[in-house]
Amino acid sequence: MYDAPTAAEQALQQHDIKISSRNVQVYYGDTHAIKDVDVDIEDKTVTAFIGPSGCGKSTFLRCLNRMNDTIDVARVEGEILLDGENIYDKKVDPVQLRARVGMVFQKPNPFPKSIYDNVAYGPRIHGMAKNRADLDEIVERALRRAALWDEVKDRMSAPGTGLSGGQQQRLCIARAVATEPEVLLMDEPASALDPIATSQIEELIDELRRNYAVVIVTHSMQQAARVSQKTAFFHLGNLVEYDDTSKIFTNPEDPRTESYITGRIG
């Protein structure tokens, strides 16, 4: 039986710092989207980014695995350290970085391939399996971890796009997990799903915390309170407050945070 840790317990469970950002600025053309963000993301912890729409939380999330590189007009300044190494350093290959920092998107986006090929995609391109049996094992493990194995084990060659929305999103999570990342970024992973699928995803996130640092962007404050241990509140491109989730939701320091979580702004 799993009990939610109390605030005191959480404070004791200090983990290593996985990602730390210093003085990060992001510009989209002339727009200054992220201003001076300093944040330390802990390993084996779920960190939630909350804030009103357009506050920059998704943008910041996409900085963590350099997905903003694919947008021509985006420019990132400052330092983001993954295990002490600056990921914006010239000698870092964004492709290898993304293998270490996986990502799950808002809308389920399975490839138009079979379920098996969807999950095997990452392991194949990274050469993680020596032979077919190895690959089978990786795929099965990823699907089990994403709590999807039992539902799809008899139709591995069916197209991934034929699954329901919640199953598709778990497939995408399995696909991300299969490459054995160290950090998993999730951009509103449940916003396109119904409540039952959402609760499945949330259970899954809690499960994933054992192995990974998970960073989740969410619009739902209840979701942030349910799944995360740390919460960061963004407002107009600034990181307003970053603390233990229990503290943010019960006793926030900044008046803006309080206004947001009580529903006065946002």
Binding site: N65, M67, T70, V95, Q96, L97, R98, A99, R100, G102, M103, V104, F105, K107, N109, P110, F111, P112, K113, Y121, G122, I125, H126, C172, R175, A176, T179
Partner: peptide, 27 residues
């Protein structure tokens, strides 16, 4: 082909040419 396909592939650490060959062309 939706941008989400490209994002999904890049997010898994695929290079651009892997994305083109294995996701975009099949789609």
């Amino acid at each position: 082909v939706p941008q989400a396909m490209r994002d999904g592939s890049y997010g898994l650490g695929a290079t651009q040419s892997e994305t083109v060959r294995q996701v975009i062309l099949p789609a």
